[in-house]
Design a protein around this nucleic acid. Structure first.
Lengths: 158, 158
DNA sequence: CTACAACTTAAAGTTGACTTTAAGGCAAGG
DNA sequence: CCTTGCCTTAAAGTCAACTTTAAGTTGTAG
């Protein structure tokens, strides 16, 4: 049992020590045993952190990682856990891609089609389109989850 | 000059009044004239807000919107401003899409290929891959901006 | 006169995933 | 004994784009 310090672990998994302390605090890692107050880790901690790290790179939130670790019956195999989470994430990503594609289309149109001299002129056009669209949507009365995509997209883009 | 109240403007452009006050506070909107302390707006304010709104839907940050409004010489046409910003944003979106596609690929592989019983087993594999990759990267010594994509992606996914 | 709706402000809260700061503990080396 | 370096904690700060809250003002209706 190699008994690594936190900064050694941090170096090996490519995280900051503060992140590891944070994961412990929020219960993603079990409290590490202390030696005169200092955390000591063995390889299983390394593996746990590798999973967190990889999951984060795949776009999983820490809540989803928590689900991966603790949200299944104990007997559920790791492969099945991943499959469950991955399927959900893939669906999310597909939605995200659709949103991005739509936005790209609009951006390209904007680039080629906009002839406005002033932003005011532009704004007047947008404002009228806005209302036209709103009216059109009110007329159709179907809409389902419309508008959601761009909302979501705006969030995901920061 | 219709002299709209803030909530009337908010209704018309589909924003919350607090957002409009916020835009004024950060200098994205000029201070609205007050009538006994209350903001009054005309149509040009509507247009400005329509632009902000649309820009946000297209994934522009408020900093970018500020650039759209104030980051060009006065004589620069609106169409050219949009083209400049749109080009940058399109490049960003292309990067983002590449990142998402890469992640989707990994997720799909994970779904089909992972046979791990336990997360520990999984973590050990990931950890070793991690090191193998790191070693491989050190060996190649080219790398350019590698690793950037997933970093960026993690950020963009929240 | 009182109630009420709609507005005002400054300041604090929200979200997620951390990082940073402040104040201090502990062991080894000189 | 003192310094150095690494560790500890709780609490606060960061980012973006707002929203919410608390406390107060104004105009109108009954």
């Amino acid at each position: 049992m190699p008994e690594l310090t936190i900064s050694e672990v941090a170096r090996q998994v490519g995280l900051q020590a503060s992140a590891i302390r944070y994961y412990e605090r929020i219960g993603l890692l079990p409290p590490a045993p202390r030696i005169s107050g200092q955390r000591r880790y063995d390889t299983t901690a390394l593996y746990r952190l590798a999973i967190i790290q990889r999951a984060r790179q795949l776009g999983f939130t820490l809540t989803e990682v928590r689900h991966l670790f603790f949200g299944f019956r104990d007997i559920t195999r790791a492969s099945e856990r991943w499959r469950t989470l991955s399927q959900r994430k893939l669906a999310e990503l597909d939605d995200l891609m659709d949103g991005i594609k739509a936005v790209r289309g609009v951006l390209r149109k904007l680039m080629t089609k906009c002839q406005c001299d002033t932003l005011d002129q532009c704004g007047r056009g947008i404002f009228q389109n806005m209302n036209r669209d709103a009216v059109a949507r009110r007329a159709r009365r179907k809409s389902s989850t419309s508008g959601k995509i761009s909302d979501e997209f705006a969030n995901l883009m920061q």
